[in-house]
């Protein structure tokens, strides 16, 4: 049966990624505008027990694809599954989280189906009978509205850009068989850092730049921990070898949009600002009162980060008592 929207979810460690709920919510809005049904795809292995959660955010139908070959979240198997779901549901719009896996699936799917694609969107709406998506370009220096003509319109949603809204749907579960013959990627090994909060999903990000002066991020880690946040780095800190590439925030790193971004010992280069500009509140701590970051923050403290940051951590801890 033809569906208005197919929302494709993703899990990590047996739970939905937050972005999945955001994608379902965005899908529910679009399905509402199109006056059609929202189908949510849950693909993986042993995922039946969590699939029902999709209903809480508005899934009318939940398509459960349980297959051993989807266990590791490899892009070719997932693309193959997604293509078969599209064929089955014939949606007008396909929505996917703009994660590293989601972007791979979306790009291959659009080529396979010869369908329009808007990547990494922060908003999506229906205008007349067309889908219009808003997406950052030039590392977030510009916001562009793009119109997608053709079907299905494929839209990937940037994590944290759209709010997940609880709005129960019928959530009728249907198991779907798919064929994964001919996939070509083989998993050798997965190395996951356990317990680490992913930068792009974090509510709070505390970043240390070249002002850290070395590998010891103790004061940054302590503040991040007391706020339940993640640790970021400027490119200079990554180039110095103090932090892994995965921690880099900026135009050639990750784009983050936490509620609170604390930049410590970061000067505020345009490439860095590009990666954090959509944070809700930005705090800058820098010993140079003239540092450009102070003109792009909400609250600034001029001072030595090694004194100020521990003091801030102590204040936060006081609140908890």
């Amino acid at each position: 049966m033809s569906q208005a929207v197919l929302a494709i979810t993703e899990q990590i460690d047996g739970s939905f990624k937050n972005v999945s709920f955001e994608v379902i919510s965005a899908g529910a809005k679009i399905a509402g505008s199109l006056k059609g049904q929202l189908a949510v795809a849950v693909m993986g292995s042993d995922i039946e027990n969590i699939a029902g959660q999709a209903a809480e955010y508005g899934a009318e139908k939940i398509l459960v694809v349980d297959h051993d070959g989807l266990k590791d979240g490899l892009s070719d198997a997932c693309t193959q599954a997604a293509a078969q779901l599209v064929e089955k549901t014939d949606p007008l719009v396909v929505m996917i989280g703009a994660t590293s896996l989601g972007k791979d699936i979306a790009a291959r799917l659009s080529a396979r189906l010869n369908a329009p694609l808007a990547m990494d969107c922060v908003d999506v709406r229906v205008d007349g009978d067309q889908v219009v998506a808003t997406r950052p370009m030039y590392g977030g220096k510009v916001l562009a509205d793009v119109r997608l003509t053709g079907s299905p319109a494929i839209v990937t949603i940037r994590p944290r850009a759209i709010k997940a809204v609880v709005a129960p749907g019928a959530g009728e579960v249907e198991k779907v068989d798919i064929n994964l013959d001919g996939t070509r990627l083989n998993l050798v090994e997965k190395h996951m850092e356990t317990g680490k909060i992913e930068l792009t999903e974090a509510d709070v990000v505390v970043t240390g730049g070249r002002g850290m002066g070395g590998k010891d991020y103790g004061v940054i880690e302590a503040l991040a921990e007391s706020l339940g946040g993640a640790v970021g780095a400027s490119r200079s800190a990554v180039d110095e070898g103090w932090r892994p590439v995965a921690d880099q925030v900026g135009q050639t790193g990750k784009v983050v949009a936490p509620n609170l971004y604390v930049a410590c010992g970061v000067s505020g280069a345009i490439q860095h600002l590009a990666g954090m500009a959509s944070s809700r509140v930005v705090v800058a701590i820098n010993k140079d009162p003239e540092a450009p970051i102070f003109s792009k923050c909400d609250f600034g403290i001029a001072g030595d980060l090694f004194e100020v940051v521990p003091a801030v951590t102590a204040e936060i801890e006081k609140l908890k008592d």
Binding site: P136, G140, V146, T149, A284, S295, E307, P310
Partner: peptide, 26 residues
């Protein structure tokens, strides 16, 4: 083309932040 840019704008810019003064780091 199936994807067409119909509008572009600059995102809202943060104005200069409020500097917090004080006698000590604490």
């Amino acid at each position: 083309p199936m994807v067409e840019t119909i509008a572009m704008r600059l995102p809202p810019q943060r104005q200069g932040g409020r500097m917090i003064d004080g006698d000590s780091a604490a």
